[in-house]
Simulated assay, not measured.
Amino acid sequence: MSIDLTEAADGTLASRAAEGDERAFEVLLRRHLGLMTAYATRLTSSRADASDAVQEASITIWRELPGLQTPDAVRGWMMTIVSRKAFDLIRRRRPAADVDELEVPSTDGAHDDPERRAQSSDAMVALRQALDRLPAAQRRVWTMREVGGESYADIAERTGSSVTAVRGQLARARESLTREMEAWR
């Protein structure tokens, strides 16, 4: 008899996967794959590089899960690994020129209402454009914090700056985005 793991909490899945349960790992990975891919795409500006980063991250996640001390924090831990792999790719090679549109899955039922779907799509286009207008350092810090959920200390370590500098860049990015997205509130 197989157990349905689709409703299991992330921490439960992480614990089971750490013990070698491949099905639990598949459910955990599938649950967060869209977010991991969107995050890596935003960091690398390349769908191809993002796919490579997520694939490398998935292998690392499987290998390092037994050492995870806090299974309930697995999502943030996974996003940190995706971030590292994305930055490793950026350092190793220039991003590919085939940048695709960032696809963000709808979770608010907007897919049922064409008008809401169009408004949501327009808002996402406006957000992408506003993000593209940010200085690269601010965009990277904003993405790592708001999309990846990384801590200020982790961002500072990965970007080679101080926590104070990260907070400043993030504050400026948030201020700019709030101002530019005011019409969408």
Rank of each mutant, 00 (worst) to 15 (best):
A156N: 07
D132T: 06
V99G: 05
W62K: 10
Q55I: 02
A156Q: 04
D113F: 06
A110H: 10
L33K: 14
Y39G: 05
P135V: 08
L68G: 02
R92F: 13
R174N: 12
P135S: 06
S121C: 07
T178I: 05
P114R: 04
S120D: 07
D4M: 01
A130R: 03
A153Q: 14
A40K: 04
L5M: 15
A130G: 10
A130E: 07
E157K: 13
L65R: 00
D113S: 12
R84Y: 02
A24P: 11
W77K: 01
I81Y: 00
S51I: 13
R179F: 12
T143W: 01
R92D: 14
I3N: 06
V166L: 01
T178R: 08
L13Y: 06
V54L: 09
A18M: 05
Q129H: 15
L33T: 13
T107H: 01
L134V: 04
A126F: 01
S15K: 03
D88I: 03
D4H: 11
A50C: 05
M144Q: 04
V104P: 07
L134W: 06
S161M: 07
Q55P: 06
A14W: 12
R16A: 15
D10F: 02
E115C: 09
M1A: 05
D10L: 08
D10C: 10
L33V: 14
R140S: 12
W184S: 10
T178L: 08
S120F: 03
E157V: 02
R47P: 01
L131W: 01
A50W: 00
I90F: 11
I90C: 07
D154H: 07
E22A: 15
S162V: 05
A156E: 00
E180T: 08
E7L: 08
G20A: 14
M1W: 03
R94F: 08
F87R: 13
V166Y: 02
A86D: 06
A86Y: 11
T60R: 15
L13A: 03
R91H: 11
D49A: 11
